[in-house]
Simulated assay, not measured.
Amino acid sequence: MSQILSRAEWEPLEAAHQARVDAATAAHLERRQETVKHPVEDFLFTYYSHRPAQLRRWHPGAGAALEAAERTWKFYAEQDGASYVDLPAFASARGDTVRFVRDLLRATLSRPAHLGCFGLHEWAMVYRLDQTGVRHADWPLRLGGAGTDEVVESHTVRCSHYDAYRFFTPPARPLNTLLPQRDSQVAMEQPGCLHAGMDVYKWAYKLTPVVPSDLVMDCFDLAREIRLLDMQAAPYDLTELGVEPVRIETPEGKADYVRRQRAFADRGRTLRERLLEVCDDVLVTAVS
């Protein structure tokens, strides 16, 4: 333990975090209760496995102890009336995961951002499908089936993210100029990829509780904003939800997409660097 926070110090931090999470998840929880789907925001809670209740738990991260907190959660320990994250226990149990995340973050940070994909992965996921077969079948395709297929066929598809590529339709897969695989993720992931930017949130919550909750929420906020662009640039017509399209089939839409993609890559770099510091601290503990 390097820092002991009194109850008067840590309780306001916990309350602020809970309020931040409540504001970010309220609409999703209300829709869930009413069994209403949302093609943009549901992704943060369905594709990613971290539930709102888990996100709401506040963790100070490794190196801080909470006086009179009585934490009984996994990877916490008690000493002199204070609860703290047991870093050696976490490193022993989750070391392989930490090493993978460390290697992935470091490799991604070492590469320049590729900004010419224009979100075509979402178009490739519906390529040559009829409306009933698309993932978000309740929402029409902006350009119709034939228009959507034409956009895919008239562009170079260059998706480097395996978890996007694996949802391509069979006729779309040969059109991709890359062949991402699960075992090539570290070798291929690049910081301009929207899905890689959203996944920083996944790597942050997978390392709970050694990652401070403010960092997890910063990653969540970035993922949420990226997801909006992801679906604005997708082939669906979501204007009923107030989601205005980024028309990547036009020069203006492409320019808008690249501008926002570059800004997300810059923000993702900062978050990856912060998360990489946590990974390094865990792994130093693991070998000491």
Rank of each mutant, 00 (worst) to 15 (best):
V210S: 02
P174I: 11
A255E: 14
Y257G: 07
F168P: 04
A8F: 15
E189L: 12
F168E: 03
E273T: 10
R102E: 02
A263V: 04
A89Y: 14
F75N: 07
G268Y: 07
S154G: 14
V186K: 15
T25Y: 03
M1E: 05
T285P: 05
L275R: 02
T46N: 05
D149H: 10
V287G: 02
V282Y: 00
H195T: 00
D199I: 01
E277P: 08
H161Q: 12
C279Q: 01
V278P: 01
S6C: 10
T148G: 14
H136A: 09
S213P: 14
H28P: 05
Y236E: 10
A69I: 03
F118I: 02
E150G: 07
A65L: 01
W203Y: 08
Y76M: 11
S154L: 13
C279I: 07
H28R: 11
D218K: 11
S160L: 14
L222Y: 01
G63T: 05
L105I: 03
G145K: 14
D163Y: 12
E70D: 15
R259V: 03
S2Q: 15
L283F: 03
P191R: 06
R259S: 08
I4W: 05
V216C: 06
L115F: 01
S83D: 02
V210N: 05
T35G: 14
R142W: 08
L13S: 05
V152K: 08
D86C: 11
E122H: 12
V287N: 08
D22F: 10
E240Q: 15
A234K: 09
L241R: 05
W73D: 15
E225R: 15
A124Y: 08
D183I: 14
L179W: 11
H38W: 06
E277T: 14
R272N: 06
P140D: 00
R227E: 04
L238N: 12
R56D: 07
D230I: 00
Q79R: 15
P112R: 13
A234C: 13
N176E: 08
A16Y: 07
A255D: 12
Y47P: 10
V278I: 13
R102Q: 06
C117H: 10
P235L: 01
S2K: 15
Y162L: 02
G253T: 10
E41A: 03
R269W: 13
Y84R: 03
T239E: 13
R272F: 06
D149W: 07
